[in-house]
Computed example of a mutant assay.
Amino acid sequence: MVGLKDVTGALQCILLGAKDSVLGIWPVFQLIKKNDKVRSQMLQCFLLNGVILWLSVLLFDYVLLPVIQIMANFVFSFVRGSSDSEDVSLLGLVTWYMFTGLWVLPVFWISKPINSIWFQDIASAAFKGSNQRSKTKKSESSSSLSQSISRLIADLLFSIVIELLFLIQAMLVGLIPIVGYYASVLHMAVLYSLYSFEYKWMYQGWIVHQRIALIEKNWPYFVGFGLPLAVLTALPSSTVISACIFAVAFPFYIVSANEAKPRQSTLSTLPLFTIVVVISNKLFSKSDPASFNSKVTLN
């Protein structure tokens, strides 16, 4: 039975997770100062997602589109003697679809693989520059010698499938009346934590089932860690703007996760990933379900 002490401890873990994600931003500036490549990639990430894509959408929605509608209203009034609001709205809708199809979507999809490369480089620099490198150096070398390339690829693909299915689960949960929105945000908080810590854990040689088991066992901390970013990306009505916010903020989260020390929870394990793991195991018949119960020690 869950007692008051357990609930209080869970709330403390959530607050600590949120605190680590926010205050963990400061090591980013140290990393930027020391590493020219990281500084360049952080700037490029901001320019691509925050300026080229995000700012262009805002300028179109709040400047260009209203100007086009005003001009169309003036032209229709001059030619016809009166303006038709339906024609002006239709013109605005067509213009919006053209802008989205010819600019937003191409840039959005091109930016995704570019962002992934930048995120990987930033994570690598953060891990190599931390004290944890010396702690895991032996395990890294032994792991890299013993694990085959095929197993590494399988683990990566398995992780991608699980995260994709969990994203779909978060969207479906959001359809539940009344509480759906909040449950979906909490799901996204957990998913963002997994995204952030995954780079560090993969460098430490943890397989996907171990990573998920750790999150499910200490879910209050990881809910808190990903909650600020989940709230920020949930506020905009535009999926593209939410993606831009995520892409700009995520490099900071990678470094925060690298410096963070997750707090253990006294509450029972919350099997958030059970359904997606079962589905993934069906898709990957050669995966080892028993490894899902592997014990992981917090560092």
Results as ranks from 00 to 15, higher is better:
V7Y: 04
L11W: 01
L15M: 10
A18D: 02
D20Y: 03
K33Y: 14
K34R: 08
N35P: 03
V38T: 04
Q44I: 13
L47C: 09
L48F: 04
I52K: 01
W54H: 06
S56A: 14
M71G: 13
F76K: 02
F78D: 11
E86G: 08
V88H: 10
S89T: 08
M98N: 06
F99G: 01
I110P: 01
S111F: 10
S111A: 13
W118G: 01
W118P: 01
S124G: 08
S124R: 03
K137H: 14
S141M: 14
L145P: 03
E163R: 12
A170I: 06
I176H: 14
G180F: 08
L191M: 12
Y192F: 12
L194A: 10
Y195P: 00
S196D: 04
F197M: 02
Y203W: 13
W206Y: 12
V208W: 06
F225P: 05
P228E: 09
A230G: 05
S237T: 14
V240A: 04
Y253R: 00
V255M: 04
E259V: 04
P262M: 07
Q264W: 13
S268A: 13
S268R: 15
P271Y: 02
F273I: 09
T274P: 05
T274I: 11
S280E: 00
N281T: 07
A290F: 14
S294G: 08
